[in-house]
């Protein structure tokens, strides 16, 4: 399998057990996501719906409940999985490529750009109704990434330059967003924008899966193909180059890919924080540093985490849905603190 050590001493590990446990957890999380919500459906109704929709059965189910299960909850769970997995993969790639443990998907200015794009559509009505908020966010995200890419390329191309350019880009686009909101938005719009910025799966339907899933699978396959090159970055760019990695090409490919993945996620569910930063670190405790394993493990862990966060966002306050970004940080941070605490002994 991998050239890097298979079993880490002192922790329960190995990719096999992790993937097995993760698959079970993902299945359970998805069950919760489909069963629970403002209206509780029975397992029987869920199974009948699945049988009808997937295998062409004709079992008797209340059409409204079937609609809730199929159109709302299942599509939402699948998009949550894709979003969580995509963000986690991006975090793994950026942390390796930029050799910075604080690197995360929004480092490249993408969430800031997406916010600006979304706000332009919501507040100023750019596109006169023909452009959706998602499309605006996507355009803003890619524009911001383009800005950061040009800035970092022009200033010397090292990993620190990319980070500095990302920070500059984020600040610029965040300021633009704040300017538009404070100068033009009504109180109602401001609340809507804030909700969007913190992430929401509320409007998600099956067509969103058609974007999120192919992009995730493409990204996952390519990152796995480049996993060895990421291993080679452990001692920096010159070391990677001397191990046979075409550093400039790998960097352009992978930065572009993470930008695309992140932009897709942000355009569908908003800027959900925390997942891309912490899931890679948490997964590393279980499967070790080899990137082939880390990418697979993080994708799975990110998917589980996001589905659970979505379930909690619907259940914590009765009759109200919290922004999913609030849940990821509110529940994710303490969980991560526990992991950090326990890993202390193993080092």
């Amino acid at each position: 399998m991998s050239g890097l050590t298979r079993a880490r001493s002192g922790s329960v590990s190995g990719l096999g057990p992790f993937l097995l446990a993760g698959s079970v957890a993902l299945t359970l999380a998805t069950c919760c996501a489909v069963l629970f919500g403002e209206i509780t459906v029975t397992p029987r109704e869920v199974l009948s719906t699945l049988a009808n929709r997937l295998f062409g059965f004709d079992l008797a189910v209340d059409p409204i409940r079937e609609g809730i299960v199929w159109h709302y909850r299942l599509s939402r769970a699948v998009v949550a999985m894709c979003a969580g997995a995509s963000l986690a993969i991006c975090g793994v790639v950026l942390q390796a490529l930029l050799r910075n443990p604080l690197a995360e998907p929004y480092l490249l200015g993408i969430s800031a750009g997406a916010s600006t794009g979304a706000v332009l559509v919501i507040v100023l009505g750019i596109g006169a109704g023909a452009v959706t908020v998602s499309a605006g966010a996507m355009a803003g995200a890619l524009l911001a990434f383009g800005f950061v890419a040009v800035l970092s390329f022009g200033s010397g191309r090292g990993a620190e330059r990319v980070i500095l350019a990302g920070i500059a880009g984020s600040q610029l686009f965040n300021a633009a967003t704040a300017f538009i909101v404070t100068s033009s938005a009504s109180a109602e719009q401001t609340r809507g924008i804030m909700f969007w910025l913190l992430g929401s799966l509320g409007g998600v339907r099956w067509p969103d899966v058609g974007l999120a899933l192919p992009v995730l699978l493409l990204g996952l396959a390519f990152c796995l193909y480049r996993a060895r090159a990421l291993d080679a970055f452990a001692f920096g760019e010159d070391a990677a180059a001397s191990l046979g990695v075409d550093v400039a090409r790998v960097r352009v490919e992978l930065l572009g890919l993470t930008a695309l993945l992140t932009a897709c996620v942000v355009s569908i569910v908003g800027a959900v924080g925390f997942v891309g930063l912490v899931i890679p670190h948490a997964t590393r405790f279980f499967v070790g540093p080899s990137h082939g394993r880390l990418i697979l493990g993080s994708a799975l862990a990110g998917a589980i985490f996001m589905v659970l966060a979505d379930v909690l966002s619907r259940l914590v306050l009765p009759g109200q849905v919290l922004p999913i970004g609030v849940i990821t940080a509110l529940f994710g941070a303490p969980a991560f603190a526990v992991l950090l605490w326990r890993a202390r002994g193993g080092q």
Binding site: L243, S290, Q347
Partner: peptide
């Protein structure tokens, strides 16, 4: 050609063997 730098550093948690195994990358491909 193999290059050994002045002062190699990393934040990645690797064993000594992991580091040596990196030398096999150019022979193994992706």
């Amino acid at each position: 050609l193999a290059l050994v730098e002045q002062h190699a550093t990393t934040d990645v948690v690797l064993t000594a063997r992991d580091v040596v195994a990196l030398g096999r990358l150019p022979h193994r491909g992706a």
